[in-house]
Design a protein around this nucleic acid. Structure first.
Lengths: 216, 216
DNA sequence: GCCTGTGAAGCTATTCACAGCT
DNA sequence: AGCTGTGAATAGCTTCACAGGC
């Protein structure tokens, strides 16, 4: 079992497959075929097989994939049996929604600290999660062994927060702010640009609507 | 000016460039070079030039791109001078955050209706936006000429809502629910899987942290 | 027959590198 | 000198198509 190239896209889809497989497993299903995973995940069967290749696990032509083994293989590839602590920065509308959304979603990916610049929001608990002022970042992040952060602050503060997080030792960030961020090469950054996504959808929606009208 | 192939990715980046250019323009800047756009958007200068090719607008080697013209060219490519109405489905935590987030963000992309299955949430106004029961979907969507919808409902209801939206005439959807949706080919669907994104970030964060530790 | 695993082909996206302009 | 526009090269991703197994 040697290191195959595992791209970002493959990682993303494998986490998806795993999430879709868990309920199937709980319902007592033992095995599954690539085309069935494909239909759950809305991708092609060939893609599913390719992706699974990256885990090193092999299915069997007559039964397909043993769900238990497949899930474990994905776990192993991502070595995330180890619970992993996450911080949230920004407790505005979006931050609160994000905190609530992720609350209890994935037990091994817990938000364990929230930071906000506003003193009124940087104390006490939110959803049971302790809140801190941004000045406490270094200490809290080191103390709680946090590697990942979610940025949900206004655009103007985003780069500053990102720098502080990197400084404090965070090595991966999910950015909701409407500013592309710059981070050092050894920090992973994922942009969640809801505004660009909505504009893209709107563009294609218009296009589809036009095509539809033309057909009539 | 003939139809070049304009991919989804290019559309996404062009909307981003446009968003980044608007403040520059407001500050009175006249022109900009590809490497400057690149640094704002955190992409390569070559990519910026390629993307701009798709709009049909050409810059000039000595002054770069006229911001005014470039913004207009992007507007034109996306023909979104026409304001465009959007519906939001689901007024839970996430739905409320989404509604607040987009409120006033882009004046030509307004959320003008909210739907929720809960009778307590499907009346009155939220942020000034009228709320309706899901049963009213057909009528409201046709009446307000809505083409785009944002789905922020629990996974279990997502496919049902999507079907209803398509039925009602929506041709583009942004899906926050943790279920890959199936839509007809003439409807554009963009998945916003925050959970998969966070897992991806966590994976690379772990990897980076390990690499860092090894270096020490 | 219907499945998996996978080399090979086909596509798409990005970057290189340079002619041409100012 | 430093920029744009762009053909050509490269890299990356997805699908095809089929050998091999049950």
């Amino acid at each position: 079992m040697q290191e195959v190239q595992v791209s970002e896209k493959i990682i993303g889809r494998l986490t998806l497959y795993r999430r879709l497989l868990l309920p199937e497993q709980e319902q007592g299903r033992q095995s599954i075929f690539s085309h069935q995973i494909a239909s759950l995940a809305k991708v092609s069967p060939a893609q599913v097989r390719r992706d699974i290749m990256a885990t090193g696990y092999s299915g069997n032509p007559s039964r397909g994939y043993e769900i238990r083994h497949l899930v474990e293989a994905i776990h192993h590839l991502m070595d995330d049996q180890i619970a992993h602590n996450v911080a949230l920065v920004g407790l505005g509308h979006l931050g609160r929604a994000v905190a609530t959304f992720f609350h209890g979603l994935n037990p091994s990916l817990d938000i364990v600290a929230i930071f906000d610049a506003d003193p009124a929001k940087s104390r006490g608990l939110f959803n049971g999660i302790p809140c801190f002022p941004v000045e406490a970042m270094d200490e809290v992040i080191a103390g709680k062994d946090i590697l990942t952060a979610i940025l949900a602050v206004p655009a103007a503060q985003a780069q500053g927060c990102a720098d502080a997080l990197v400084q404090a030792g965070v090595t991966g960030m999910l950015n909701f702010a409407l500013t592309p961020l710059h981070v050092p090469r050894n920090v992973f950054l994922e942009e969640m640009d809801m505004s660009a996504s909505l504009e893209k959808v709107a563009f294609y929606a218009r296009k589809n609507a036009q095509a539809k009208r033309k057909r009539t």
